[in-house]
Design a protein around this nucleic acid. Structure first.
Lengths: 193, 193
DNA sequence: AAAAAAAGTAGATAAATGTCTACGTAAATG
DNA sequence: CATTTACGTAGACATTTATCTACTTTTTTT
């Protein structure tokens, strides 16, 4: 539970008392999920967003040829879920599963809306989360549309050293939009420099 | 002015009176900008976000080789600006200019924060704008990391037929992360089908 | 500890996309 | 209206990245 409290205090300028926090927490559900288990499957509705207390999760979709494309990777203190499905309660085209045994704190969209009204800190938190997501997404788009494989990998390694450690290369390759073979070659190239 | 009022009413569930709207409007500045003029230049701070009442704007950055990469295209009822710079008042790495003679309604981040507190409708509006931006960004990332040039163009044409009409091909090519030459070939291919 | 599955590397080849030059056409400008 | 500038297309060629198969190593499972 503490990780979420720390997270709230870190990203919100508005103080949150222990008391407030207990009310907030009562809207979250604690859930353990074991490696390789699904948090969300394609076609399902993402009823809850999850705050990762511990572990590592991956979000991907499967194309017509059956290939997996990783669109999001997340570890401790990140959120996982399909935003669109969570807000609209529409069926998701993504799969989300645990890459390591993980512990999550789940919350529904309705509850977040409710909490935001009760506690301005939560509203602020969500706004800032969105803001950061937007900025990160913008960066990733820029990277994807204009950089070479090597540059994309180098940037990724620089921006997310933790993810680099915890996910296998073929997953990272997919995340930055190249094949595992190309990533392997790129890494070899970089070693020679 | 009306376009903004319509926009607010469209995207907010909370009603806004004429009176409220006048107060809101008093925080916006009207600005005309002529084709090819800069709204923001690399290195400058994006002091205002702009709601496009009329016209078409483009946001891009210039790489080491001097090539332009379009990261955002916007027309009526869209917002323009560099989010990161606008929030942090940090120097931007983007250029934003008018592709057509345009009319904007400008607003500072401070004023938006202020207005959000005074009028919940504005807060909701901003939240929803972020939400839609995030969803759109996610889609664009998916597109960039896993689709072919042809698929990316087809999707773009389908999602944004208006942009297709109003921006030249080399700009659209850059936006979807390919060269104008490739786009020209792709289009030819598609005609044959 | 043995067996099975997953991950990483490598080389050969293919496919997609980029680069460059040139040219015709359309649009903006004076 | 004439001139210039920007735009789109085309072909030849270069480069990057993907695909496929094979093999080795590492990790997971039994």
């Amino acid at each position: 539970m503490e990780p979420l409290l720390n997270y709230i205090r870190k990203y919100s300028s508005i103080p949150v008392s222990e008391n407030d926090f207990e009310i907030i927490m009562s809207h979250f559900t604690y859930k353990k999920i074991r490696k390789k288990q699904y948090f969300l499957q394609e076609g399902g509705v993402c009823k809850h967003f999850g705050f990762i207390v511990k572990g590592a999760m991956r979000q991907y979709y499967i194309d017509e040829k059956g290939a997996e494309h990783y669109v999001q990777l997340a570890i401790e203190n990140w959120w996982v879920g399909d935003r669109e499905s969570w807000v609209m309660l529409s069926p998701s085209r993504y799969n989300i599963d645990a890459w390591e045994d993980s512990e999550l704190l789940l919350v529904s969209n309705t509850d977040v809306v409710k909490l935001s009204q009760l506690f301005p800190a939560i509203g602020e938190l969500m706004r800032k989360m969105d803001e950061r997501n937007n900025i990160a997404a913008q960066k990733r788009i820029t990277s994807a549309i204009s950089y070479t494989a090597e540059r994309r990998y180098a940037d990724f390694a620089c921006d997310y050293p933790d993810l680099l450690q915890r996910f296998p290369q073929h997953v990272i390759a997919s995340y930055i939009g190249i094949t595992k073979d190309t990533l392997s070659r790129v890494r070899k190239q970089m070693l020679l420099k």
